[in-house]
Amino acid sequence: MRVPTLTDPRGADFKAYKRIRQSETIVALERRAIEALRALGIMMTDTCIIYQTIQPPTFGEHVAYGDTGSTIYANSVLGARSNFEGGPAALSAALTGRVPRYGFHLEERRRGSTLFRLEDRPRCLSDWGAVGGIVGRSMTSYWEVPVIAGVSAPVRSDELKHFGAALASFGSTPLFHMVGITPEARDLATAFDGTPPQAHPIGRADIDAFYASYGVEGEGLDVVVFAAPQMSLFEMEQLAGLLDGKRVHGKTTVLIATSPEVKAASDRMGLTETIETSGAIVLEGVCFYQMHAREIGEANGWRTLMTNSAKLVNIIGGYGYQPTLRPMERCIACAVAGKVLP
């Protein structure tokens, strides 16, 4: 490898796969893939949040990311330069130390093209994901660069993570600007390199309608998933706080996916123990939709799924699940009740 080369989440957690009935066939495939990647000199980081756990790229740094959530965060929040690279193209970049000179590596491609104005501040991570989903649904091509105005106070890394991951997923969008927040959008004129277009407003009613577009209330709840992207240490702490002293309903499974680094820190700080005492399962180095979701769904009889990840509700409907989006606190309350509650 000519440049440091890292891996995205795997499809199986070797320490936990039996608890969620993943087949030995899938696990054997995973072991073969790991052997091959190691032989190439690739670092098995197994994470989609390298910018929160390993090393964030810097402003102007050219990278080749085969992960949409990492790409949009690196481009937008950090001002690094990447296109969406598929696995084979990212591997080619690693072998050569080169990427094709096009798209979002070029300054002129990075200016804003569509303007949105937030009328109401999102209240939680899933709200930020919903806004990302709303903007992403309206994107017509990879080349459209949305600019978000109306965000008056700083936004946390996890909030931008959920917003970006959903926007990238719903829109196939690798770059956004947030006026006054992200580095290439000091003000509106900078974001657009001139006069901005008319803004599309996004308010509380739009966010509520986004939630309402998924799920059916009153049904039994089979599985609650916190993943896509993997949990940061702050999210793990929040989950531990919400699950402390609670008991997950006997008919509901709670899965929490995080990176190996965050898992080790969570173990050390007692967060994993608090979480798993409730009956929830912490998985490391994986992400739910990459874990052969259809097969584990069938093996466990899972159909109704709840998550606070807008990205996951976008993906998982095609895998035999009926997904519902709720804030993290509601997800936990529903997991304890064993039902899809409002």
Partner: peptide, 26 residues
């Protein structure tokens, strides 16, 4: 999806835009 349930095997797919993540690449 509008084409839910339909087979795409051997057909020329005519659609609006590529969406989503990187997995289509492999």
């Amino acid at each position: 999806h509008i084409l839910h349930g339909q087979s795409y095997v051997g057909r020329i797919l005519v659609l609006e835009a590529a969406k989503g993540g990187v997995a289509t690449a492999w």
